[in-house]
């Protein structure tokens, strides 16, 4: 079973399906409160993040990034967990705000290079480890 070693960012364990965002998701006018990705030209445009595990390099765009995801969560459409190749302060704000399992700062392998949309993974926010359970 392939494992990716990162640093724990927010505790909790989650198992679920990956949505890969190789160029992150634009915070402002990138994700709707319904959970649907509306960013023009996004590879997963139209998909809903609810219950999925988001994998991205870090944040993108406006300082309102965390707030955009918070509103998604408040409408009941939060993702299940998330992984960031490298933490930045907007991701960390969002991690603490949404309080779902989170892992970041992968040293050996970049999850954005290894994972694909549809992969089933277990993400452990207590240890920082991602295990690939089933490839898409």
């Amino acid at each position: 079973m392939e494992k990716l070693m990162g640093r724990p960012v927010f505790p909790g364990v989650a198992e679920g399906e990956v949505i890969l965002c190789p160029d992150s998701i634009q915070g402002f006018l990138g994700i709707a409160a319904s959970g649907v990705i509306v960013e023009k030209g996004h590879p997963e445009e139209g998909k809903n993040v609810k219950g999925k595990i988001l994998v991205m390099p870090s944040s993108k765009g406006s300082i309102a990034w965390a707030m955009s995801f918070k509103q998604v969560a408040l409408e009941g459409n939060a993702p299940l967990a998330w992984a960031f190749t490298k933490i930045d302060s907007k991701c960390a704000t969002a991690a603490v705000s949404l309080r779902i399992p989170a892992v970041a700062d992968f040293k050996d392998a970049d999850p954005c290079a290894v994972l694909k949309t549809g992969d089933i993974i277990r993400l452990d926010g207590n240890t920082g480890v991602i295990e690939i359970l089933k490839k898409a």
């Binding site: 944040s59 300082i63 707030m67 930045d88 302060s89 907007k90 960390a92 969002a94 705000s97």
Partner: peptide, 24 residues
């Protein structure tokens, strides 16, 4: 909470700030 202000104050004056969010 203004990203262009982060860039301005960090770059032009060497003050110290990160982006974050309204929450932080």
């Amino acid at each position: 909470t203004e990203s262009s202000n982060v860039l301005f104050c960090n770059s032009v004056w060497g003050a110290m700030g990160n982006c974050g969010g309204t929450e932080s």
